[in-house]
């Protein structure tokens, strides 16, 4: 059995947003008890990550690390049409994930106790982000 749905998230600029609950709601709606949940973000300047969910400073540190690794407005960038965070956001996306695949066990997204599913917004401005979910199982 296959269930497919599109979710839309509003972001408030650069940072991580926990979307685990919304994903679980989709799994509940699908009625699938055992299978695989594939997530895919339809953008090239935002990504999906699995990350520690208890202490938000972990994700703040992750963002600080990424900002150091991929500098906004680096003079090597040719593509700066939409500001200094534009090209950096594309690179940050490549270094992380556009897709995640998570097992479903007994109707639950089978994450580790301290794992959460996060949408990582790489642009500094507000954006609307589409994430499509494909659940396969029975």
């Amino acid at each position: 059995m296959i269930y497919q749905q599109k979710l839309r998230f509003s972001t408030k600029g650069r940072g991580t947003y926990n979307i685990s609950e919304q994903i679980q709601e989709c799994i509940d709606k699908s009625g699938i008890k055992s299978g695989i949940c594939n997530l895919f973000i339809q953008h090239t300047s935002a990504s999906l990550i699995l990350c520690e969910n208890a202490d938000k400073t972990v994700r703040e540190d992750l963002d600080a690390y990424m900002a150091k690794l991929v500098k906004d407005g680096d003079s090597m960038y040719k593509h700066q049409d939409e500001g200094p965070d534009d090209m950096a956001a594309h690179i940050r996306t490549i270094l992380t994930q556009s897709a995640l695949s998570i097992p479903i066990y007994k109707g639950r997204c089978d994450l580790g106790m301290w794992q959460g599913i996060f949408l990582w917004e790489h642009r500094t401005n507000f954006h609307k982000r589409n994430v499509s979910i494909t659940i396969m199982g029975e």
Partner: peptide, 15 residues
């Protein structure tokens, strides 16, 4: 991995 919908890859418009 990416989704397939209506027989096409369900990519974002700029992907």
């Amino acid at each position: 991995a990416f989704p397939v919908s209506r027989g096409k890859p369900l990519l974002g418009i700029w992907q």
